[in-house]
Amino acid sequence: MACFLSYGFLTCVLGFLSAVSADTCVQPEVVASAYTTQDATILTSIAFVAEFSLTCRNNVKGVILYAEINGKTVPAARIGDSKYQVSWTEEVKKARSGDYSVNLYDEEGYAALRKAARNGEDPSAVKPLVTVMVNYPGAYQGPWVNSEFMAAILSLLVWYLAFSAKSKLLA
């Protein structure tokens, strides 16, 4: 009823038909780049950002994608005609260095993934549309020894040398 009143009948019908007639991506090709936090001296979380472009052999544009990373599912943000971005964070203590697999699913794959999880089946049985690898080399978490500790040790060393030199002079 709201369709007739607010947008016009033709707009609603065209919107419905475009949603229903969405094609799936055939033979997807992905070109990806990634960013991860490199310095974690004062941070509590590591940021991961994967940016990629998706081209389909059947020239489908505007595919809605979902990403699955370590068992968590997040929507992929479309930042262009065929460019997407996925981002997530992990605590510094839990982030492991190495490769992270970002499994990408279209709407059908995402529905199958949710159905498998709901039925208690193994979600890894659902084949992703494509997988993007994000390499995390690790983050710098500061020096092994704090500068305050080194200053205290050096001041004690200077005091000891000065005290022993004074003792030798007076003796």
Rank of each mutant, 00 (worst) to 15 (best):
A19T: 01
F9N: 07
L169N: 04
A112H: 07
R78E: 03
G98T: 03
L129K: 00
V86N: 07
L169K: 08
G15W: 15
S21I: 09
S164C: 13
L5I: 11
M150P: 05
D81E: 15
S124D: 06
S21V: 12
V31E: 12
S87H: 06
K83W: 10
K94G: 09
L129W: 05
V49K: 07
V26F: 00
T73R: 03
L161C: 13
S97H: 08
P28I: 04
L154C: 12
Y66E: 07
A139R: 02
Y100K: 01
A95S: 15
P28T: 04
T89S: 06
S147H: 09
R78S: 12
M133K: 14
V126C: 07
A22S: 15
V126M: 11
F52M: 06
A67H: 03
L157W: 09
Y66M: 06
V86T: 04
Y105A: 04
T41R: 15
A165M: 12
A32K: 10
A32F: 02
A40C: 13
M133Q: 14
A139Y: 04
S6N: 13
V145T: 00
I79W: 00
I42M: 06
Q141D: 06
D23K: 09
L104P: 04
A22C: 05
Q141N: 12
A77I: 09
G142P: 01
G71T: 02
P137Y: 15
I79Q: 01
M133S: 14
E68H: 06
V26A: 03
S147Q: 15
Q38W: 05
A19P: 04
P123Q: 11
E107V: 05
C3E: 14
W159V: 13
E91R: 08
L170V: 15
